[in-house]
Design a protein around this nucleic acid. Structure first.
Lengths: 236, 236
DNA sequence: CAGGCAGTTTGCGATAGCGCAAAACGGGCC
DNA sequence: GGCCCGTTTTGCGCTATCGCAAACTGCCTG
């Protein structure tokens, strides 16, 4: 059994509606594993043998085209599940998962899923909610890519990262894991060059402070304004 | 009870694993309704009071930005469910559904869902698969929007429409419901002008034949080639 | 049968963002 | 402490695509 204090994870969305005393039984089926920074957890196209609950660290889920281009599907924060391929009826993982920081996850074998949801229907319901939320986020992302220009999309992406994985600093919010310009480009459908130019511009206006794989939002409010500004209602 | 022959819908994905004799009980909770062409079935933001199974016709699900721009989330074909907001834990519909052709749908009240899935767990499992598939499709769409240029995206969109709702014609495949250039633009993240130019070009090459809200793929194979061609490996 | 209208086509700039290339930078490793 | 490599910055031309405007067309309506 995984050596994890049940009290620390009982409140997670995945376990909503599960009796605390049942949690043990669920965790008994899991093991935990450590993934050092920059190691792959699973590869796109590989058989989905496990599903995961991230305990510590951060995981990047990315999808690759036949020609090698990548997009970042999402960043997984602690407390979130990932690798749910089997729950949605996929035999293979549709994306690659990589630890972007030293990470720890609970791992259940795919084969345990049918038994678990039969015994604890709340798990199925919670997972449905999670998948549904991700679907809506995807649609929002498509909407943004269709209607906004790059600067706005980058602003939205940073704000989301900040609210999901932001760490309060003296002045502003720092994104709590290493993230490159390239990564942000792959989240917003642009190129690292364009992201670099945008961040440079923001930096000179004091909106952000950034460096090697590191971004601090110095003035989140102004970034919100940027994110929402209608392109042609720009400053005089 | 809805006057629908159970034998006609028993094979639908939604009912996979449901005993034919149970189908009656499920249908007893539903009513059916007719939606004339161009009528709204529900509006984005409205309380999700029902969920739907399309029997005949075609339905367009679209999302609108605060500034009024729209994207087409998907076209619903007969046999597919839509308006599943409640299944994924959303109290309001995240998009607007409109009949693009005279349509008929089965309608269940949202309130029936918990009882139905308790009594027929296969419904929940099937819906999970459906939602999961849509999530993957969304990710594919994001990938395309990020990595392909407009012409390729339009090619992919038409091929998908053709395989989902294509009707065989003497020469080629006709998309079986009225769809405008604007609609295609909203599916691919471009403008109706650009779509019009692209289709004009294809028409002069004999790849498609099209008119007012009507598109026939005359040479699907060549369109597949266009869809997959790497932009810089273009013809000499 | 004549309008009228929604949908479509097309021309013509304007430009946001790309792509290439090269230089600067910063950190970690030996 | 110095070197090496991955990341970032920036210049510069290029072009795919947009945006506006105007003309056109086929349908449906009265």
């Amino acid at each position: 059994m995984a050596k994890v204090d049940t009290s620390l994870i009982a409140h997670l969305p995945l376990f909503a509606g599960v009796k605390p005393e049942d949690l043990d039984e669920i965790l008994r089926e899991a093991r935990s594993a450590r993934y050092p920074k920059n190691t792959a957890i699973f590869e796109q196209g590989a058989d989905a043998q496990s599903f995961f609950l991230l305990l510590h660290g951060h995981v990047r889920a990315a999808k690759t085209t036949p020609t090698g281009e990548q997009i970042v599907v999402r960043y997984v924060a602690p407390g979130e599940t990932f690798g749910l391929a089997m729950a949605i009826g996929a035999a293979q993982y549709p994306a690659t998962a990589m630890a972007v920081d030293d990470s720890v996850a609970l791992i259940w074998p795919t084969s345990a899923w049918p038994r678990l949801i039969e015994r604890f229907p709340a798990l199925a319901a919670n997972t449905m909610q999670t998948v549904g939320k991700r679907l809506q986020e995807s649609h929002t992302r498509i909407l943004e890519m269709s209607t906004q220009q790059v600067e706005q999309r980058v602003a939205h992406a940073l704000l989301r990262l900040a609210s999901q994985s932001g760490k309060k600093r003296d002045h502003g919010i720092e994104i709590d894991f290493p993230i490159s310009r390239q990564d942000i480009a792959q989240m917003t459908g642009t190129t690292l060059h364009t992201v670099s130019r945008i961040l440079s511009g923001w930096e000179s206006q004091g909106l952000v402070e950034s460096g090697r794989q590191r971004i601090i939002l110095r003035d989140p409010h102004k970034i919100v304004v940027l994110a929402e500004r209608n392109p042609d209602s720009g400053a005089a």
